[in-house]
Design a protein around this nucleic acid. Structure first.
Lengths: 236, 236
DNA sequence: GTCAAGAAGATTGTCGACAGACGACAAAAC
DNA sequence: GTTTTGTCGTCTGTCGACAATCTTCTTGAC
């Protein structure tokens, strides 16, 4: 604390300089590979291969994988290694119901105690419209959508809500990206967020809760339906 | 964890056995030490010391600690190591609100779709009465109480609810045990579970949800109040 | 042709070692 | 006396090696 304040008061122009280590970088790299589809669900993640490819030892790779495991992207089997988790339609359905439960409570708290969060939410919806206008890819849409929902959890004032959201965020993204396309008209994705923002703006917590529950419920149906079809079809 | 439950549901009389061994055993051992108070919040957990004491290398210890980190018992700081997490009253309050949200949804689902779970819940309440009768210690009470709540999440049919519950279970226990004593009369702990079970038995989901929300809410107030006092007093 | 047993290869589990980072304390400068 | 600088011990970050374990392929019997 002393160091910080003195540095600030003396006005040094230095940034904290990210001291995040190797493990974080490896983890991030793996997440990108999985979410981009370069590594597909069910595929094995051999520590040695990854280590060799990244030109480092197995230890940091192993730790990064353990990190991904706790965020649900990857599954670990004793003496067999790590695998990209493959989710059933049921499991994804459960995931969305968890999101409904969490985000309903979050939006309620936000509406009642933190109206200042509204501009940030509005900005995200605008961003979604712009992406639709520009014909952006699915990845970008999903990313901004998740940012919107994260802002809701963050604005609830309950750190635990945010913690749970972050823990399932990557898994949700993976579920979405496997599908390839969610709405036929990309504008719909932006539009479906309007009722939530309107209810918050009106200060109506019940309406906001109902709106977000409906919003996530619709997404749930779309996603589980798609995945159900995929699993019927693509059994190799 | 999954292994344990599946073994239990299949009714094998075997203990988990050291199938995965080391890492799990180390993790379990550390959890016990923390929950028993042998290692106190804020204390540093030096890998080398633990490894030497358990007569093994640092690698499995490190992995076990990372495991505990994802369950919130332990906190990691880059280049500084692991510390037992010390929770503010606020943080514990948030934790209980998360529990209200999750378990309310869980008990609702359970009441509507899975009445077969009732006998198991009744048995846990009986167990609580027996513990009170026998004058058992706080640890035993807390343990059975948590088993009751876990059964509710399990009975909801939504694996994600159970997953979140398991993730915060140890932290909840720690919060409780730090206090030392929750209810003056140990019978009260058993009694406060009755309305929940009754509502489930009546098939009234709304009543069950209200009952469990009230039940956890009371516990929340007790715990946060205790912790608030402790933090005022015990600033060394 | 099918199945089982065993050998060979590959991958994980654990270890000990060394380099780098951090905190504490001592020494020096003002 | 206070602040800065230098030094030291301890702990983490990463590595390469070896043992234990799983998977695959081969071999042989029926």
């Amino acid at each position: 604390m002393n160091r910080e304040t003195s540095a600030l008061s003396e006005g040094y122009p230095f940034l904290p300089l990210s001291r995040n280590g190797l493990v974080d970088r490896v983890a991030h790299s793996l997440v990108s590979a999985i979410l981009s589809g370069a590594i597909r669900p069910g595929e094995r993640l051999a520590e040695s291969h990854i280590a060799r490819q990244m030109d480092l030892s197995r230890a940091p790779v192993r730790e990064a994988l353990r990190l991904l495991e706790s965020s649900g992207l990857v599954e670990y089997r004793t003496n067999r290694g790590f695998f990209v988790r493959v989710n059933s339609a049921r499991s994804i359905g459960d995931l969305y119901e968890l999101r409904i439960v969490i985000e309903t409570a979050a939006v309620r708290a936000l509406t009642l105690t933190n109206p200042d969060a509204l501009p940030g939410l509005r900005a995200k919806v605008d961003e979604l419209y712009q992406l639709a206008e520009a014909g952006a890819d699915m990845m970008s849409h999903v990313s901004v959508d998740m940012q919107f929902h994260r802002l809701i959890c963050e604005g609830s004032g309950n750190q635990r809500f945010l913690q749970v959201f972050d823990q399932i965020a990557n898994e949700t993204k993976l579920g979405l990206l496997v599908i390839g396309r969610l709405y036929d008209d990309p504008h719909r994705m932006a539009e479906t967020h309007e009722p939530i923002v309107d209810a918050i703006a009106a200060g109506d917590a019940d309406a906001a809760a109902a709106a977000i529950a409906y919003h996530i419920g619709v997404a749930k149906d779309l996603v589980t339906e798609h995945i159900g079809k995929q699993q019927e079809a693509g059994e190799t």
